[in-house]
Design a binder for these strands. Structure first.
Lengths: 342, 342
DNA sequence: TTGTAGGCGTTATCAA
DNA sequence: TTGATAACGCCTACAA
């Protein structure tokens, strides 16, 4: 009784079937073979439990049927939802998904990008933060397609899939305005992050469109982490003239803001109105139900995966593609209607 | 100007350095080389930007420096926290992590396990659900180490890392008991899932230890999904003699239970006490702050990753290892003290 | 210490 | 249609 079963190779199959390796290889790769031989090969494959050695194949074809997904964090819903979708689509095409999480760290991001290239992935899906653009250019040059998510990179022609962040914010703030709010605070992300810039733009634009002045004191910048939400919401509350409503522009900070509110025992929406971001589960579990902006994360993942597949097949039509998906607003009960509204 | 840069091979390096491929290979693999040659090779490597082709190396060594992680869902904190930790540790050792998500589906789980084997991963970390045990045995036989998380598999000797689910439940329910609760409901997971069985055992054991009778009406079985939490909590509330406290045994169902409570406007802990599971963020955002059982997910990931590395190195000491980690209880304000307690 | 040469399992070219 | 055979890039006896 052998302990270790040696995997059968094509050679074994060929011998078993009484044919040449070449013929077996052809059959496996979809090239016509005599009906009779087809049968014999199938038989041999079954008998020997043969499976192609992807490594050996990769050596020849320069393909690994593996793609890399590089995201800021595995502990954030936005990323994992996308990854989940991507993984399931890629698998259908036989690709495996290597996950790398760069924990919001530019250096790590760059390192892991190199790591993926070094692993010879056939393509990369990247939620970029501070990547060195030359790396992307290099990859593209070496014929490794890259799909960006959420943020384009200046000076680089690259496919990108993102949510319409600007209008997401625009619409959210518009709801607040139409319900009578005039002092609307916004808790933004880091000023050097694209999504954050866009969301702030939306906030500004809707104010312009309603001809409302913007009070700089109502704009605060966080870092997309929970603690920011706590701190900045507290700052708002401590202001002499606090906002009647606050729009919080990502999930983690929304969490933080609510914690701050809770710990000061402030009633939503009686004392302050809130629109948050991104997590339906959270929205439903908070009392009262939160109004939130929901990004089409599944769709983003879907588009990114399908686009990548297309590129890996060598189809460069429409390059560089920009897919901009609409967000939705889920209305809860966290926004008060202000009487003073005319 | 060439568009596609061809990666340098060892042959190129050897030629550039005026040495044989063998020498270069040796140097790269840590075998002694004359100081002088060392320098020349280093120079060549830098000049040509050479990196070993892992694929080619893999063909020879039968190693891919890739591990597979197979989890029930990428949209659940328990799994992603573990994956995140695992990924970061493995990377340090040069391994990449292929993620597969089987969405609580036994068939998918089995398929993806095969997929990973077929991809020739060097090791697997698995949070099992309904895997065919022969697959694990087979993998182990073929010298592909497997580390189980959260659930052992009957009749299979395999390393495993898990939380002490039994005592997690035991301790949680004990808190309820010492605060005076006597009618304590439990929302369990599926009866065929190991963690669910263990948590129920804890519930039963603590009742025995306090010599309390168990009312079958207070034990409900869900499927670890949000909807279960909603439905079962509602069932409790509709009972003629509802429990004064409910212990909910995973994160998703905790979410659901809270939603049910909220939508019926039931006050925690005045009208009902609650202990939930697994998500600190959730616990802090719910009002009042939730008491929850917290699993040491990071630790689980850490142990699993390190154990896997050890096994992949060929160190079989202590096989099969069982690492059982303690949980913690984070006390919030969701449990009332009942006066009637003597 | 270095080099030669064979082999890892496939694919692909070119004859047959 | 099939079959020899030479790569693919690296590792590893074995010989020098």
């Amino acid at each position: 009784m052998e302990l270790i079963k040696i995997a059968a190779t094509m050679k074994d199959v060929a011998e078993y079937a009484g044919l040449s390796i070449a013929t077996v290889s052809k059959y496996i790769n979809g090239i016509k073979v005599k009906e009779e031989n087809k049968k014999r090969i199938d038989e041999a494959i079954k008998a020997l439990d043969f499976r192609v050695n992807e490594i050996a194949r990769g050596l020849k074809t320069k393909k690994t049927t593996t793609v890399g997904v590089l995201i800021p964090s595995l502990e954030n819903i936005f990323s994992t939802t996308i990854v989940s979708k991507v993984e399931s689509i890629l698998l259908k095409y036989g690709y495996s998904t290597i996950i790398c999480d760069y924990r919001q760290n530019r250096e790590l991001e760059n390192e892991k990008f190199d790591f993926l290239i070094n692993k010879q992935v056939d393509g990369i899906i990247l939620v970029p933060y501070g990547i060195n653009e030359s790396k992307i250019i290099e990859a593209l040059k070496e014929d490794i397609p890259v799909i960006l998510i959420d943020r384009s990179i200046r000076g680089v022609d690259c496919d990108i899939v993102l949510a319409d962040n600007l209008n997401a914010a625009y619409n959210a703030v518009e709801i607040l305005i139409t319900k009578g709010h005039r002092r609307i605070g916004i808790i933004c992300g880091p000023q050097d992050i694209y999504t954050a810039q866009e969301r702030l733009k939306g906030y500004i634009r809707i104010h312009e469109d309603y001809e409302l002045e913007i009070d700089e004191n109502l704009i605060k910048y966080g870092d997309y982490e929970i603690q920011s939400g706590i701190t900045l919401m507290n700052e708002f509350l401590d202001q002499k003239n606090p906002p009647s409503a606050v729009f919080i522009t990502n999930y983690e900070m929304t969490l933080g803001a609510i914690m701050a509110l809770n710990s000061r025992n402030i009633k939503i929406p009686d004392e302050i109105s809130i629109i948050g971001f991104d997590n339906i589960q959270l929205a439903n579990v908070v009392k009262p139900k939160l109004s939130i902006v929901v990004q089409p994360m599944q769709q983003i993942g879907e588009f990114a995966a399908n686009l990548l597949i297309k590129r890996m097949k060598g189809d460069d039509s429409g390059f560089p593609a920009m897919v901009r998906l609409k967000t939705e607003i889920l209305e809860g009960e966290s926004v008060a209607v202000i009487n003073s509204y005319i």
